[in-house]
């Protein structure tokens, strides 16, 4: 399956189906980042029930709290 991660094309195994799998397997230590799927921010609790499909666009955003 082909998705876009931060604008770059990425081929992922079809075994990865939920957004939660994607976060745990592909992102690993980047878990703390905000995840935006096709222009919508996804809450942690919703990741399990969202299934990735070809052409999905995922953006990872590091929130910045300093000032």
């Amino acid at each position: 399956m082909k998705i876009f991660l931060n604008g770059k094309e990425k081929i992922i195994s079809n075994k990865i189906s939920s957004l939660n799998d994607f976060v745990n397997i592909i992102l690993g230590k980047e878990k703390g980042k905000i995840i935006e799927l096709n222009g919508k921010v996804v809450k942690k609790g919703e990741r399990e029930s969202i299934f990735l499909k070809d052409g999905d666009r995922i953006e990872l955003i590091q929130f910045m709290g300093g000032g």
């Binding site: 703390g32 921010v41 942690k44 929130f63």
Partner: peptide, 11 residues
């Protein structure tokens, strides 16, 4: 953008 507060140490 930030529906839930990050856990301490997460960011």
């Amino acid at each position: 953008l930030l529906p839930e507060l990050p856990e301490q140490g997460d960011i």
